[in-house]
Write a protein that binds this DNA or RNA. Sequence first.
DNA 1: TTGAAAGCGCTAACAC
DNA 2: GTGTTAGCGCTTTCAA
Lengths: 355, 355
Amino acid sequence: MRRKIVTIRDVAEQAGVSVSTVSHVLNGNDQHVSSEKRDLVLAIMDRLKYRPNAIARSMVKQKTATIGLVISEIDNPLFVPVTAGVEEILRPAGYHIVLASAPDVVSEKQAIETLRSQQVDGFIFMALSLCYPYQHLVQLKEEGVPFVVINRCLQDQQINQVSWDDRNAAYQATRHLLQLGHTRIGTISGPLLHKPPRRSALERHRGWLEAMQEFQLPVPAEWIVDGNYTYEGGFEAIKQLLARVEASHNLPGALFVATDIMAVGALKALNEAHLSVPDDIAIIAMGDPPFAAYTIPALSTMVLPVPEAGRRAARILLEALAHGQEGSAVQIALSCTLQIRESCGALKSRQIIVS
Amino acid sequence: MRRKIVTIRDVAEQAGVSVSTVSHVLNGNDQHVSSEKRDLVLAIMDRLKYRPNAIARSMVKQKTATIGLVISEIDNPLFVPVTAGVEEILRPAGYHIVLASAPDVVSEKQAIETLRSQQVDGFIFMALSLCYPYQHLVQLKEEGVPFVVINRCLQDQQINQVSWDDRNAAYQATRHLLQLGHTRIGTISGPLLHKPPRRSALERHRGWLEAMQEFQLPVPAEWIVDGNYTYEGGFEAIKQLLARVEASHNLPGALFVATDIMAVGALKALNEAHLSVPDDIAIIAMGDPPFAAYTIPALSTMVLPVPEAGRRAARILLEALAHGQEGSAVQIALSCTLQIRESCGALKSRQIIVS
DNA sequence: TTGAAAGCGCTAACAC
DNA sequence: GTGTTAGCGCTTTCAA
């Protein structure tokens, strides 16, 4: 990369000491070096603009102080805050992050291979909640490579995992609607029929359902519509809902929408239909990306603690890196908090739960 | 990283050949190896689950096939599409990307140091358009390290740069408003008074001004308000504009808003003031992040070709990596295209330009 | 406290 | 074609 590479040997020569002495001051092994020599060496390094070669060091130490962060969808809004959380913990610990995006299992395997040949010390996998096969992860584990997995659907108790408690969050979201006095609550769900299944979509749907059933509220099939986790899906979901109830005029008074982006699409379709949110239909969503606060009306939503997931994952990994993997795996489900904005409106007259 | 590391020597031993033969098949130097031996070696590699050590290879080859991507703001919406564009070009060329976020000059210098000690082969710098000092970049250049800079404010003709033609884009945006028949056009600008200056804010403002002056249209000071490139800034800008014209009722009929996020804030404030977009005020913005299509009304905007900037930067870098830096630097200003959606409405009765 | 020397896993002359 | 060997820049015993 540079014309003339300054090596530890050049420094040693200039300073009139041996390479091992230079190496010692480089690594802060002060007990092995007299302070005069140390200062001298430091001065020479400075003068020569010596830059230690991390590659060479990694080769002998058999570790690189870098970890691989493999992301299933680089344009997922969760990606940036997770990365930020991971960085926040890993950087002060002296680790670097190398990123790989791997939209499917095949490219994930490839990414793992590549990163391993780059000698990363461990991995964090950040996924959609897709229930992919994960045999290769089990194998990674068996080979003794430390890693942790965020937001993935896998049953293995031996694998470090952090995720969100989607079911409970959806339950709480629905309860919020109930507390506001709503009883006619429909849902725009994530892709319930997707193959492979999407854990979060299933769990969120289940949370909504449980809340409804707990209060013995009707959940007509026409109020359940799949929005496929996209803006367009949310938009179409409303169109479809409206078409379904056209004859019956049986419109729900509120909607639990499984992601904010679908809620934004729903808002658009509702607006086109001249239906007001929250007056005609209240909406609560989940996720809380930046834009959730910027819609008209601003979205009430369950906030996923995304950076926290990154931090937790990083800490778990650091622990594994330091003390080996021998302990049993860590499994964490982070809980979400309610962020009340405008899309659910105020208390309605009759209220079925008080809590 | 693994208990027992399989090396090229193990493979050679098992196959009963020399390490150089193994190395040759590893590097696809087929002309130097008989096909029987090659197949044998390949089989052994497979059996032993041999994984080449990229670190060791880089050490001897004096290059790592990785480039450093340093980003000034990781949560800038431009970041992901730029990265995607860079990846698209670099990956097929066999390069890896290591990411560093460096919000200020100091951490940028640090990031450069760190990445250089990791022996990256080159850099791409992706910036806000801040006019930071860039002495360290000049020095990088002098040391012969190839790099290219995206969206940065620097005058050096010797440095590879790709950016957007902000001035012209703003000019075109304003012309769109003019063509629609607007003549009373205000602006919500980026931070014009920021230190260090922000090139894009200045240029966009200038583009608007030039269009207005070209048609000798009035640009009253009360129609120019600083929105600081944020949602909140856009929101407050409208509040302020409304306050300023409260007495005179001298409201502009259209607004050139320098970024979409400010436009979203403006939409909110306008909505609160019961002013309709585009009927009372037309809005055109710049940037075109995903949410620009999702607002109500959807934003007409000048789209910055962000992935293209990433691709260009990557290609320039690849070129420099392959053939050295001896040629003069490449400087590209990408032009933006108009995306018409809803926020400007339809043609008004009288129209001052036809083109 | 200091230094000499043996590698880390791989490539690339250079011999054969 | 194939093998031998000298490093790449650094850390780390082990002696001195």
